[in-house]
Design a protein around this nucleic acid. Structure first.
Length: 290
DNA sequence: AAACGGACCAACCGCTCACAG
DNA sequence: ACTGTGAGCGGTTGGTCCGTT
């Protein structure tokens, strides 16, 4: 397979994005939407490849990104989903509105794997380490649980992940300390300093992270997730369907505050559909039993 | 104060898949 | 059926921050 033609061009910038570049890309996408990524750099006046632009948009500029620390519920959900889906970060991310696959992948590699080991759980198999050690002692090869078949890589697993979420439920982090990471982001803020009418409260863009959390109403689910490695898949389907699914949400309202910007693109059609849904009006489920 | 190392994060690389011609 | 291209995904790398020595 050939490389991306855009990547073959010379004089393309690499590395960290400057605020000016962010602004150009953001303005372009908000005005014209996402069409052909390979055409975006030229149209937006950027010396980047389309791939880089796409990544920057998805992982950083997209207005519906949640940012901030992961809540305990989110971490638990990621672990649960990983147990079922393996390293399919995009599918896991699809179940966590406002989170990117890259973000989840980083969290997993830097934090969650370690936490699981500390709990005595093997992060690859999600089985107790002692059990694995016993098997090692018996010279049985312990193959990391990683569904590789084409069937498992297809829609069925995505549906399975959705099933997990529908029944697991989770909550949006509400820790006020979660803003500190957001505040470490580069200078450019794709949200101009306008005031967002958030129900009864009015906040500026520097607090938009918390605004999403503020507006989030919680819908309690009745999920109970078992950590028993045995019969995981079966048990996953046994949960009561009680959570409100994210697709019931309204179209993205992040556009609304930008009164001077005409949006020509329906962002609900973005590839990461579940992430493009309106978080500000989202009703997220909670782990009631945790 | 400087050096070091770990944690975290953004971005790149290489691959596969889907699709149009 | 084959080929080229773009999109998307997961693994990996490199930079920065921060705590410890």
């Amino acid at each position: 397979m050939g490389r991306h033609s855009c990547c073959l061009k010379e004089k393309l910038r690499k590395g960290l994005w400057s605020p000016e570049e962010d602004e150009k890309l953001y303005n372009h996408i908000t005005r014209f939407g996402v069409g052909c990524w390979s055409a975006v750099p030229k149209q937006a006046g950027l010396q980047r490849c389309g791939k880089s632009c796409r990544l920057r948009w998805i992982n950083y500029l997209r207005p519906d990104l949640k940012r901030g620390h992961f809540s305990q519920q989110e971490e638990d959900l990621i672990i649960s989903l990983h147990e079922v889906l393996g390293n399919r970060w995009s599918q896991i991310a699809a179940q966590l509105p406002g989170r990117t696959d890259n973000e989840i992948k980083n969290l997993w590699n830097s934090c969650l794997k370690k936490k699981l080991r500390q709990r005595g759980i093997d992060p690859n198999t999600h089985k107790p380490l002692s059990e694995i050690q016993e098997q090692d002692e018996k010279n049985l090869e312990m193959v990391a649980w990683e569904p590789q078949s084409k069937k498992l890589r297809s829609q069925s697993m995505s549906e399975l992940g959705q099933s997990v979420v529908n029944n697991l439920s989770y909550g949006i982090g509400t820790d006020n300390a979660s803003n500190d990471r957001f505040l470490r982001k580069p200078v450019f803020d794709p949200f101009p300093l306008f005031e967002i009418q958030a129900g009864e409260s009015s906040i500026n863009s520097s607090n938009r992270n918390s605004s999403m959390e503020f507006q989030t109403s919680d819908v309690l689910g009745n999920a109970v997730f078992g950590w028993d490695a045995e019969g995981k898949l079966e048990s996953l389907f046994q949960y009561q369907h009680n959570g409100m699914k994210s697709q019931e949400l309204k179209p993205s309202s992040w556009q609304e505050p930008q009164q001077n910007v005409q949006i020509s693109e329906d962002y609900s059609s973005f590839p990461l559909t579940s992430l493009s849904e309106d978080l500000t009006d989202a009703n997220f489920d909670l782990f009631e039993q945790i």
